[in-house]
Amino acid sequence: MINKYLPQIKNGNSKQFFLMAGPCAIEGEDIALRIAEKIVNITDSLNIPFVFKGSYRKANRSRIDSFTGIGDEKALKILEKVGREFGVPTVTDIHESHEAAMAAAYVDILQIPAFLCRQTELLAAAAETGRVVNIKKGQFLSAESMAFAVDKVKDAGNEKVILTDRGNSFGYQDLIVDFRGIPMMRSFQVPTVMDCTHSLQQPNQTSGVTGGKPALIETIAKAAIAVGADGLFIETHPDPANAKSDGANMLHLDLLEGLMQKLTRIREAII
């Protein structure tokens, strides 16, 4: 099913970008279905291919008492239900090699977190499931260096790779986006995505809770589409202030439709 949604960039630009969106973490079935339904209605009306995202478990937290999940199997079954009920692909991140096969039984795309994008064994394990592998570019790496991550997946026998930029470390507590990375990573002949929410994180805050600049999500998204990104990654929630994970840099769900309308017009202008 996923091949229907991902543009074949070796044949030129797709007429439309695709959207990977959903909550940061799976908090429960009702809210996951509610978010998915709202996004499906928006993307269907604008003819935007949609992939529902949600972490079944959060492994990289600033504090040990931070929310990590509702239980692996429970969360993965919710992701499976979203995919089945709405007929859309789903994506979740994995953190260790042994998780690849488990998660692949429920979702269409396995995501490699940015901090783990050089972990050869993890990349190979994801590749060997046969699922699409979405690799987040490390904040500490250049776009050029992601060619090696792509090679690791392909050398493991899987050609289905996506690369996602999520900004570069800028000092100790901020990130900055270098949009030169989008065309560079597209030159590897894989779909390239801009993570419009994590790229606006402000990590390592003294409170132990990551901050963010959600007011700039639209700016990042517009620029990404303008430079040719194949897709956008956006975490969204109906109540970001009370989201259990990464609420500080999420887009309010009510703002998603207006943003997608603007981005669709930009896409039409550059094709």
Rank of each mutant, 00 (worst) to 15 (best):
L141A: 01
G167V: 13
G181N: 04
D108N: 13
D108I: 09
L123Y: 08
T219E: 08
K137D: 10
N204M: 14
H95L: 15
C117E: 01
Q202V: 10
A124N: 04
I94N: 00
Q111R: 10
A226E: 03
M185A: 02
A149H: 00
L123V: 06
Y106K: 05
A221P: 00
Y106C: 15
S199C: 07
E99A: 14
A143F: 13
E96C: 06
T219M: 07
G208W: 10
Q111E: 11
S169M: 13
A147Y: 02
T206D: 11
P214F: 07
S187I: 12
V153P: 03
K222F: 05
I225R: 00
V227S: 02
V153W: 07
D151F: 00
I135L: 15
D174V: 05
F170G: 01
R118G: 01
A149E: 05
G130S: 02
Y106E: 15
A103T: 08
E159Y: 13
N204S: 12
F188A: 08
T206N: 12
R131F: 05
G231I: 00
D155Q: 13
L141G: 02
S145Q: 12
C196P: 05
I220N: 00
C117S: 03
K152F: 05
N134K: 06
N168K: 11
M102V: 12
T192D: 10
T120C: 03
Q205C: 00
Q119S: 07
T197H: 04
K152L: 08
T164Y: 04
Q173L: 11
P214N: 08
D155N: 02
L200K: 10
A224I: 07
L216K: 00
S207Q: 09
S145M: 07
L123G: 04
P191V: 14
A223Q: 06
A126G: 02
D195W: 00
A215D: 15
V209L: 09
I234G: 03
E99Q: 15
Q205H: 04
F233M: 13
V133K: 01
A124I: 13
P191F: 11
T92V: 09
V132L: 12
A126F: 08
S97M: 10
Y106M: 09
F233D: 06
I94V: 10
A229R: 06
I234W: 02
F188N: 05
V193S: 09
K154G: 03
G171L: 11
I135R: 07
M194T: 02
V193T: 05
A143H: 07
E144W: 15
T206Y: 04
G130F: 06
G171C: 14
N168M: 14
G157Q: 12
K152Y: 07
G171M: 11
K213Q: 15
Y172P: 04
T92R: 02
Y172A: 09
T120W: 10
K222T: 11
I225W: 05
N158Q: 09
F233Y: 13
D195Y: 01
E99Y: 06
D93R: 00
P183A: 07
N134M: 08
S97D: 15
V177Q: 13
M102I: 14
S207W: 12
M194S: 10
N158T: 05
Q205I: 03
A105S: 15
A156C: 14
A224E: 10
L216Y: 14
T164N: 06
S199I: 10
E128R: 03
A229W: 03
L232D: 01
E128V: 09
D230Y: 07
Q173E: 15
Y172N: 03
G211T: 09
D151I: 04
K137L: 05
